[in-house]
Design a protein around this nucleic acid. Structure first.
Lengths: 150, 150
DNA sequence: GTTGATGCAAAATGTTTGCACATCC
DNA sequence: GGATGTGCAAACATTTTGCATCAAC
């Protein structure tokens, strides 16, 4: 976009956030966030999977950079880190269309469904308030068996 | 058992559960569960910490056995496994006085408070039901900053 | 040109496993 | 006595780090 003369280069939210902190927009960082935006909300990828996708589709990115980038994107609020499964954390895109939501995970096959619940959010904030804590986020993980695994 | 005349040896719940499955009551298993019962409900220990406690207090137990025992005790319903922190899971005693409860964790210092909420339990079971899943357990993790870390 | 970022390989964690020996029943 | 459990050390999986080189600004 805006490749030719005349049009100013639009700064992406990522670029803006990075520059605000004196950090740089690198192809690797852009590609990782792009990947999450391409696969959309509700997909949970591990670091290894992100690496695999990027390698396959094109460029060589090192796994170390993936880890560094994922942590960065979480810190900057672009991604959300999940701890649903054993063996490695997973990440998902965070956006306005994708507010606080919770996960229903099949402990047998790993199938994951998402759902929202105002009561849960409310219960979390009341708990935090009553103990004098400042709420950051609350997530409900429901471990269950999916229809196929019952 | 019932070695001497008169008084029958009381079998512990642990021993009963083990024998029911053809498994054995070993000093290591007893000591791990004893430790959790001694420190009581609401304390969350990592495998490494359990190992440390047992080494200190007395006997040599190997870390491998701790891992095996913790998994066993979870499978048998004596302990509950938590995934509150980065870097290793933690375990806590499970008992009647200690029903489904949730955790409020300070992401800075790790301080943990517990709380209960019927609404949360309800929201989890409704979510499972609506997708045709069979509920196993639901846990709300609230990430926050404690008063000292704000 | 400067500072921050990447890639590589090595190290650090946390956890599991194979196998010989010990021990519970 | 025979199956089960333990300890040890080695294997594994995931994540982090030191350092030389590279690239964004």
């Amino acid at each position: 976009m805006n490749l030719k003369s005349g049009y100013p280069t639009l700064s992406s939210p990522l670029e803006l956030s990075l520059h605000k902190k004196g950090l740089r927009l690198t192809p690797q960082r852009k590609k990782v966030l792009d990947l999450f935006q391409r696969i959309g909300t509700g997909n949970h990828l591990s670091a290894e999977e992100v690496h695999g996708h990027l390698i396959q589709i094109e460029s060589k990115v090192s796994l170390a950079t993936i880890y560094r980038t994922l942590r960065l994107l979480v810190r900057m609020g672009f991604l959300h880190e999940l701890e649903l499964t054993e063996g490695g954390h997973r990440f998902e895109l965070l956006s306005k269309d994708n507010p606080d939501h919770h996960h229903l995970v099949c402990i047998n096959c790993g199938r994951t469904e998402e759902f929202e619940s105002d009561q849960v959010v409310l219960a979390g904030s009341k708990a935090a308030e009553s103990k004098g804590f400042k709420l950051i986020e609350s997530t409900l993980n429901v471990r269950a068996l999916c229809p196929d695994c019952i």
